[in-house]
């Protein structure tokens, strides 16, 4: 790993200032960034740790919404969101392994936008709002393709605000070595309708399955999806599965998510 200057600010303002420096990079839990740096796929000059900023940590319920600080770890979300939003807590508790969950954060996962990560499915499936150091970004506008998001240079995720659904579930078909989703489905039912977000399957990362949403909005039951088929166009192909295999998993995992909700 190339060397860098390490800084750990204690306020958002200091972090924003540090990230304005040349070749500065934000570090959250580091569970993806550090392996990337070891492979020299990333070599920042300045690394700005975001885990020492108190206002970016913690889970807080405000009425019908659950607000989670960006530097809150998966283990903390699994514990502290369990009462208000069990599907989200369950998703967080299934990421990686216990040691990874003690360091990895929701903000880090979202900023990275790995096409097989779990959190993007929860955020898009809940129609959550990503609150940054500059603005608020709707989930539908946030995810913009493989490892790419609406975040601008130097912009930091501060928190994520989830509207709490009537019912929700998450099911992932796990790649057993990496524990990422080979395909995962997050389903959330609101008064306004049902949202379905799929991770691990799309060539452009997380996406909404609109046919599934329409069917579940009309009738919220796993059987309501029985007659649907998913096109393999635009789905990922790798050594773990073909697009057609993933297309089938989209439907099967969505049905399992509905049953789990």
């Amino acid at each position: 790993m190339h060397n860098f200057e390490f800084v750990k600010p204690s306020t958002i303002a200091e972090a924003v200032k540090a990230l304005a420096r040349e070749d500065a990079q934000a570090l959250s839990g580091g569970q993806t960034l550090m392996p990337t740096m070891k492979q020299r796929l990333a070599a920042p000059a300045v690394l700005v740790s975001l885990t020492g900023i108190p206002e970016m940590r913690g889970v807080c319920r405000n009425g019908d919404a659950l607000e989670i600080g960006a530097a809150t770890t998966h283990a903390e979300v699994a514990r502290e969101a369990a009462a208000a939003y069990p599907a989200l807590a369950g998703l967080a508790g299934g990421i990686g392994d216990p040691a990874v969950r003690n360091l990895g954060t929701i903000g880090g996962s979202l900023a990275n936008n790995d096409p097989a990560a779990c959190y993007p499915a929860a955020v898009l499936g809940s129609g959550a709002t990503v609150v940054t150091s500059k603005r608020e970004i709707a989930a539908d506008d946030f995810f913009q393709g493989l490892f790419s998001t609406a975040l601008e240079e130097g912009e930091i995720i501060i928190s994520v605000r989830f509207p709490i659904p009537e019912r929700a579930g998450y099911a992932k078909f796990e790649q057993p070595a990496s524990r990422f989703a080979l395909t995962g489905a997050f389903v959330a039912k609101y008064a306004s309708g049902v949202r379905v977000a799929i991770t691990g399957a799309g060539q452009d990362g997380v996406f909404r399955w609109s046919d599934g949403e329409r069917a579940l909005s009309a009738s919220y039951a796993a059987d309501a999806l029985s007659g649907l088929s998913v096109s393999p166009d635009g789905l990922m192909a790798d050594l773990h599965g073909t697009p057609a295999y993933r297309a089938n998993l989209v439907k099967v995992m969505t049905q399992r998510a509905v049953r789990a909700s």
């Binding site: 580091g30 569970q31 392996p35 690394l47 283990a75 216990p98 040691a99 990874v100 003690n102 360091l103």
Partner: peptide
């Protein structure tokens, strides 16, 4: 808390 010390600065 258990962490992987190869992936912490």
């Amino acid at each position: 808390k258990a962490v992987k010390s190869c992936t912490v600065f």
